[in-house]
């Protein structure tokens, strides 16, 4: 009997938890402000100094290589943001990268853009010169007398 009550209340709690999660998603207007607040905005698990997911870490490392200053938001610290950002971009996974307020993609896409050189171009469009580009130019300067 006691067990029965326990399992019932447990089920009720679970339902409540999932409902709360649904209703507590951060509103789109608030997220819009966040993505517009900086040229590059990253939603990730953990913080750049200590990413808590390999995919988020990969994004941090790519940004570091390009010397990009960006604003990072930790979705693990804010459940409403974690759900809200997924709804906002209609993208099911974290991390998520925004450049100039526009959703660019997650880890796979950023990695591919990094490899193809598209990332350097995209950053240039918003007035950010990639550290990799600067490095390359300096090397070329050295070569030509």
């Amino acid at each position: 009997m006691n067990l029965n009550i326990f399992s019932k209340s447990n089920n009720l709690l679970r339902t409540a938890a999932s409902l709360a999660r649904f209703y507590s998603a951060k509103p789109a207007e608030e997220i819009q402000k966040m993505v517009n607040n900086n040229k590059v905005v990253v939603f990730m698990k953990g913080v750049p100094e200590q990413p808590r997911c390999g995919f988020s870490n990969a994004v941090v490392q790519i940004m570091r290589m390009h010397g990009v200053k960006y604003e990072a938001h930790d979705v693990l610290a804010d459940e409403a943001l974690r759900q809200g950002i997924k709804d906002f971009s209609n993208w099911p996974t974290i991390p998520q990268v925004f450049i100039n307020g526009e959703f660019v993609g997650g880890c796979d896409i950023l990695l591919q853009m990094h490899r193809s050189g598209d990332l350097i171009e995209e950053l240039e469009k918003v007035g950010i010169k990639s550290a990799l580009l600067i490095e390359k130019e300096q090397e070329e300067e050295k070569k030509s007398p």
């Binding site: 698990k45 997911c53 390999g54 870490n57 693990l76």
Partner: peptide, 11 residues
């Protein structure tokens, strides 16, 4: 293979 887990899952 994908990058290693860094402990964030399950939180």
């Amino acid at each position: 293979p994908s990058p290693n887990c860094r402990g964030g899952f399950g939180k």
